[in-house]
Amino acid sequence: MTRVIKAAGAAMDGGVGAPMIEVERINSYYGDSHILFDVSMAVHEREVVALLGRNGAGKSTTLKTLAGAVHPRSGTIRFEGAAIEALPSHVIAQRGLQLVPEERRIFGGLSVTENLELAALSAPQPLPLDDIFAIFPRLRERRGSYGRSLSGGEQQMLAIARALIRRPRVILLDEPFEGLAVIIVQNLLEVCRALVAQGQTIVIVEQNVRAALTLAHRTYVLNNGHMVFEGTPEALRAAPDVMDRYLGV
């Protein structure tokens, strides 16, 4: 049973533009197990959308489906007007939809610089390395180090930097703050705020609901693969039943 609680006041505020990603009733599977059930959502230009839900709700699967790492068995995903649900993941990335996966997936045998160069390879107009190092000064210090020798925080910085160097149209951030020290979370939040101020479109999945809500313009809540809520952060805070039942906050 899918019941989307449409909160009042979910309309876009002034800064947000035209629809960029339109997801309509997608169903995704791993082998025989059905994970996403008729999931629909939309992301607009310059918007920050938080995708929330308990462990195993299907948040990562939704992002992977958007990025083409998982292909939905039914439903459509339009990105800037064109259907992308059947495209291979490298083509989706080339169009500017960039996933930063939960596991970070840094290349351990490549240096920091090589990780960034690899990410920049297929981008039409990559950011100069210096711009990346201005955002993450720590990565400049560690540019010659192997990915496997980085701390968790540095790996997450590099994972985000690999996305930024491509100048993506949309960044899909899967639990960027997971398992990191408070000070590093603060640092990454500032980077995210600066991106938002520049008009970067972001979809963020976070267990840290409070952190996510400070960034988001709009939120979706998934439960057992069903979309159960859509609305502004204020509307979500004003819906204690949703917070309690689906987020455990």
């Binding site: 490298h90 997936r105 390879l121």
Partner: peptide, 16 residues
């Protein structure tokens, strides 16, 4: 070298 470690991630970063 990247593909030997994680071909899926290379693909997710836009390289076929």
């Amino acid at each position: 070298r990247a593909g030997i470690e994680d071909a899926t991630m290379v693909q997710l970063l836009g390289t076929n």
